[in-house]
Design a protein around this nucleic acid. Sequence first.
DNA 1: TGACACGGTTTGAACGATCCATTGAACGAT
DNA 2: ATCGTTCAATGGATCGTTCAAACCGTGTCA
Lengths: 347, 347
Amino acid sequence: MSRILSRLPVTPPTLADVAERAGVSRQTVSNAVNNPELLRDDTLQRVQEAIAELGYLPNRAARNLRTRSSHLVGLPIKAVEEGTANAQMDRFVHSLVEASSAVGYHVLLFTGAQTGDPEDDLPGYDDLLRSTAVDAFVVTDTYLGNPQADWLNDRRAPFVAFGRPWNDPDARHPWVDVDGAAGTELATTHLIDKGHERIAWIGWRKDSLLGEERRAGWSRTMRARGLSTTGLASRVEDTVASGREASGVLLDEAHPSAFVCASDTLAMGVLHTLAERGLRAGPDVAVTGFDDSQVAQVVPPGLTSVRQPLEEVAVEVVKALANLLGPPSGDTRGVLLTPTLVVRGSS
Amino acid sequence: MSRILSRLPVTPPTLADVAERAGVSRQTVSNAVNNPELLRDDTLQRVQEAIAELGYLPNRAARNLRTRSSHLVGLPIKAVEEGTANAQMDRFVHSLVEASSAVGYHVLLFTGAQTGDPEDDLPGYDDLLRSTAVDAFVVTDTYLGNPQADWLNDRRAPFVAFGRPWNDPDARHPWVDVDGAAGTELATTHLIDKGHERIAWIGWRKDSLLGEERRAGWSRTMRARGLSTTGLASRVEDTVASGREASGVLLDEAHPSAFVCASDTLAMGVLHTLAERGLRAGPDVAVTGFDDSQVAQVVPPGLTSVRQPLEEVAVEVVKALANLLGPPSGDTRGVLLTPTLVVRGSS
DNA sequence: TGACACGGTTTGAACGATCCATTGAACGAT
DNA sequence: ATCGTTCAATGGATCGTTCAAACCGTGTCA
């Protein structure tokens, strides 16, 4: 019969065990854990001693059942894209986990239907919510046309977005985002200060509002400093190959001395072109990227890049979550954070 | 037969609701969900219709309470290291989440005490387990001296390791790992086939058994092909700077025509040296890395690298988990997978 | 004819916590 | 001595599910 060993040596102590040991009722122990201010000092201490002696920990499942909440937030993770250098997600996830645990929440990962169409993921959200597997979501990809935000809003599902609600300026969900234009402005100003005057832009296609915002930071800074932008902008796909190609054309036709890119991926494409033409990144042609990915950190001679304050973003996201799930204090709908510039050899 | 998506505010239907609608008892509905083979065909169908009509989903918390299991596996994530190019964890995590959900499990992230000392993380594991927050763990860092595995083993905590139990060859926990020596053998063979004879090794300090294993793949292949290894090996820290320095020294003293590195990080260091000396990676000096990180994919001219089958690893880990938590079928203690070589411009 | 086995279904009792209404004691004011 | 108020602590009901045992009609065999 004892062939099957119990996984844990003994069954963990319950509220009732602690209550008996401390000579109080279950409810009092519960209060000692959740509302200590309700107890008299001496009883509180007695209960806490009993808790410590028995090594009591509340059973999550029982608590979840009774309170109808799981203290879990769901984070959908999308497929890993091969070419693009967006490994920065790591940083965000790590901070999110840490910040969440500080307010008693854990992060649950899940994937969608894997069909590529975000539409197909939506039932997955619903199931998690209705089965009380998670209390809320954190969504990270609110590009234009992504149905997630709208869908979750319709269903009154609690969630916080990393990314502005581009398609619906007065959406009612809380969000946190990074000011992209401020980032490219930093990069452009930096290059101008270094003496560059013909500074090119390589960004994404026009339907990306995120891309257009970053572009605006470059163009407004150029204008403000009295520099021309005509013929200096290119809009392509977010791949190394596109960046390589676009920079080649720009070098031939517009002779820029520096490139500001909408992503590290595109900037890597520029580095490819420079390497092919025997030009040195930095001394000959300056390049800046966006994201401060690991690639930017290790590629020779180091890629100057705009760094998003992902740790801060995570903290703000968790604040919004706490506000959403706990007692609402203020209702700050959106938070916009400012990035910084990490200068390396490429500029 | 349209799927009913109820708004969140209304309480979701319960087992009892379904039972009433189908004209059966609660337990019968429960069986329809968990042990359909126990029901007569017509009853099963009736119940399934009721489930579909109401859009019923079992309440996770209640199920967890009753079955004393959470259907969650805990995955500790460590701090993001800045310099090193090991963002490959993404790939593993993604596959793990996917493979887990296929067998009804979700992945819960958590961080340790953030003190840097892994010793301090251990209570965190214990708490999660005892509060029935997770059923098991997946640990990923079983380097020599890491107390996790031993500690979990002592406590009979169910877990699967990605990484061999280096310090205890007959540890009793299941593990999955990648054959590092086979990987460097692939790289070395590839270089030899390309005509290289003086092939240098840059790896980690001797106390890393993982590093020694990778080194063995290089040295045994060299020996097997009748090539000398004397003076061609260097053991340093896993940083870009160390790789840069070590490759400089080797180039001066041993004149290798190719480098096999224990990591992409070290290989990037070699690329730095080559760039500084005006040497082209590939035509002039060949370089191979290990991990097939995103850096390897985007750095010009592309870094040849050993790619770990992380997707397969995840699948095997989940298999082991299922075996551990469900009815044990076989008891395969360890699984060793073989990596592949991704050839790019650097070789 | 009675005992027994069987597949399919039902019933009551957990699982371990919190919510809610209530009790008991303490205390100052009448 | 009585009353009202407040503060601490209690006991029972409850969350939604699964477990264990009981039930019931039918068929089989001694």
